[in-house]
């Protein structure tokens, strides 16, 4: 892992020496002028992942509560196995479905807001949300099942309703595990390439003046992964600075995904 980070750090050295921290805070990416600012890409990745988690989070936790707390164990397996299968579907399949169905749906549904096309950050976020849902459901279900049944019985014996047991006993105890599920899902969201690539629009330099505005969600954007997945890497080859800038994106991406997955895994294992 450290070796991988090392390779990326070494390969991207030219851009760090030229741009310094401006590489991360810079808002313009014009490779032919040798201007490399990765902030719009980081913004794109964050927005897309945020939309995905906001959509898939509550839905996923709700579904997991239903599966873990209400279904008898046979039915639980009947539901859980297909969900885990869903989590394993290659992302290009989701991407193609998104390109076929979701683009048009977003384009038509949000027609009042006049998006220029169906390729938007929102489209990518919704698609990612759908992809993350099975991951969140199955990990949250595991976390809830790890809460000892004796505690639930004790709760019921004290006169709590089942809903109160879930709210006051199961969820608080599974908190760490659920947090881990979100972080692992975030890691996957940040690193997802193909599906996002097909629906995000891949438009550079789309940093809004107000970072908390929702308006840019309905515009095209670019994420760290969609930039790396495009053909610019072929142009960069042979130009040390440009190549360094592309490798720098790899370094940023790696740090973000590894960071969230690492914290998530630590939380999860600490919970068990």
């Amino acid at each position: 892992m450290a070796a991988l980070l090392g390779v990326f750090a070494w390969q991207s050295a030219p851009v760090w020496t030229q741009e310094g921290l401006g590489y991360i805070t810079g808002t313009k990416w014009f490779y032919r002028q040798h201007e490399f600012g990765a902030l719009p890409l980081i913004y794109g990745s964050m927005m897309v992942s945020a939309v995905a988690l906001v959509l898939a989070g509550p839905l996923g936790v709700g579904a997991a509560i239903c599966i873990a707390e209400y279904l008898p164990s046979r039915a639980r397996f009947a539901v859980k196995i297909p969900i885990e299968l869903l989590a394993g579907i290659p992302s290009v399949v989701y991407g193609l479905l998104g390109a076929l169905l979701l683009r048009d749906w977003v384009y038509k549904t949000f027609a009042n807001f006049e998006p220029l096309s169906g390729d938007t950050l929102l489209t990518a976020g919704i698609l990612l949300g759908i992809m993350l849902l099975p991951t969140i459901v199955t990990l949250t279900d595991d976390a809830l099942r790890a809460v000892p049944a004796a505690q639930r019985r004790a709760g019921r014996a004290l006169g709590l309703t089942q809903a109160e047991v879930i709210w006051h006993i199961s969820l608080p105890q599974a908190q760490r595990g659920i947090g881990a599920a979100f972080l692992l899902a975030l890691g996957r969201a940040l690193g997802e390439t193909v599906a996002v690539f097909l629906v995000v629009g891949r438009q550079d330099n789309m940093l809004p003046s107000n970072l908390f505005s929702l308006e840019p969600l309905l515009a095209a954007g670019q994420t760290l992964t969609s930039k790396l997945g495009g053909s610019e890497i072929n142009i960069a080859y042979g130009d040390p600075l440009h190549w360094g800038a592309m490798m720098g994106l790899g370094l940023l991406l790696l740090s973000l995904t590894v960071g969230s997955a690492l914290v998530g895994t630590l939380k999860r294992s600490g919970d068990a």
């Binding site: 390109a99 384009y107 629009g201 438009q203 330099n205």
Partner: peptide, 23 residues
């Protein structure tokens, strides 16, 4: 240097232009 939404392969280009108004 310009910043527009980008398209790659021929299939993708045709598909996106066909399904977008004013494309």
């Amino acid at each position: 240097q310009v910043s527009f939404p980008e398209v790659g392969g021929n299939e993708e280009t045709r598909g996106k232009v066909a399904t977008t108004r004013g494309a």
